[in-house]
């Protein structure tokens, strides 16, 4: 059962009507096939129309959809033989950031990403995908391991932001993020990052400073949440939609700004309507990007990464 977003209300109403007709049809008294077919076509057209012109704020809601596939869904759908490795060897284990070696269509990679969880228990376990210093330090450890053993690094980015809490500050959230960003930039192996849901500020950059950065079609990536920008710049929480628009948070805007390199199309109506199709598209896109980086030396890779970020802000 799909949960509908506010702006999907007309689609939800049509779908409810279709379900009703189906129940009636199953009771066998009326032949409603033609009517159902008509409504289904109408619903599909409405879905296509709606998703063809999502506003930045609507995309933000799609990116945060509770049923949107998350890290562990992608592990299940597009990777094999994942060995999750735990701990930063300094303080503890952080389940908001998961990682370990895995195979993508047989190719060995080091997979790292944020996991938000998909029900109350798992959301608490994964702290809603908001990493703490130990999570970022685990990511550093895994990146260094990848460099040592020649595994390309693939990251799946999906976080509202790094965890804003007292212990996170005490243990050096800033330092952990800064060093994780540096670890990305230092990798002697290829790195491909994919923003699959929310790319929330420094907590995202820390594992997204790659030479190739992809975004799912309806993912968002921004310096601050639209709500946060609204309350700081407009001094009201009500202008989130305007803030999302003004900050240019969508994959389409970021491709135009050359902050990302490629958009991975989502199935009609968003990744949450067909996680398998979303994963298949992501798998082939990441595979192609890794193919494109094969054979480059460590120096060539770090230089590409450096130039990619140095040019941002140059005339």
């Amino acid at each position: 059962m799909i949960s509908f977003l506010d702006f999907e209300k007309p689609i939800a109403e049509l779908e409810a009507r279709i379900a009703e007709l189906r129940t009636t049809a199953e009771s066998g008294q009326l032949d409603l096939a033609a009517e159902i077919d008509k409504l289904e076509k109408k619903s599909a057209a409405l879905l296509k129309g709606t998703y063809g012109k999502l506003s930045p704020w609507q995309k933000t809601q799609v990116a945060r959809h509770p049923q949107r596939p998350h890290f562990l869904d992608y592990v299940r759908l597009m990777f094999t033989d994942f060995i999750p490795l735990a701990g930063d060897r300094r303080f503890g284990e952080d389940e908001a950031i998961l990682g370990g070696p895995a195979r993508l269509n047989g190719r060995k990679v080091m997979l790292i990403g944020h996991e938000k969880g998909n029900d109350t228990a798992s959301r608490l376990k994964h702290n809603f995908g908001m990493g703490k210093p130990e999570g970022y330090r685990k990511a550093i450890r895994l990146m260094e391991m990848a460099g040592k053993f020649g595994l390309p690094v693939v990251t799946l980015v999906d976080t509202a932001g790094a965890f804003p809490g007292v212990e996170a500050e005490e243990r050096g959230q800033s330092e952990a993020i800064a060093r994780a960003t540096e670890a990305c930039l230092s990798l002697p192996v290829p790195m491909v990052a994919a923003i699959v849901g929310e790319g929330g500020s420094g907590g995202a950059v820390a594992i997204a400073s790659a030479e190739r950065v992809l975004m799912l079609e309806h993912a968002v990536y921004s310096v601050i949440s639209p709500e946060g920008a609204s309350s700081i710049l407009w001094r009201t929480p009500e202008k989130a939609a305007d803030a999302a628009e003004a900050m240019k948070v969508t994959a389409q805007d970021l491709l135009a700004l050359r902050v990302i390199d490629r958009i991975v199309p989502e199935p009609l109506g968003g990744a949450h309507r067909d996680a398998g199709a979303a994963a298949a598209a992501l798998s082939s896109a990441i595979g192609e990007e890794l193919d494109g980086l094969t054979g480059l030396s460590a120096d060539e890779l770090t230089e590409r990464r450096e130039e990619r970020f140095l040019r941002i802000g140059r005339l």
């Binding site: 540096e182 710049l233 970020f309 941002i312 802000g313």
Partner: peptide, 24 residues
């Protein structure tokens, strides 16, 4: 206070950009 929100993602990208310089 942090990043310049009025430059959106381009301000966020200054985090890796400045880090590149420091690596050099």
């Amino acid at each position: 206070g942090g990043a310049r929100m009025q430059e959106g993602i381009l301000s966020l990208m200054q985090m890796p950009k400045t880090t590149v310089a420091l690596r050099r």
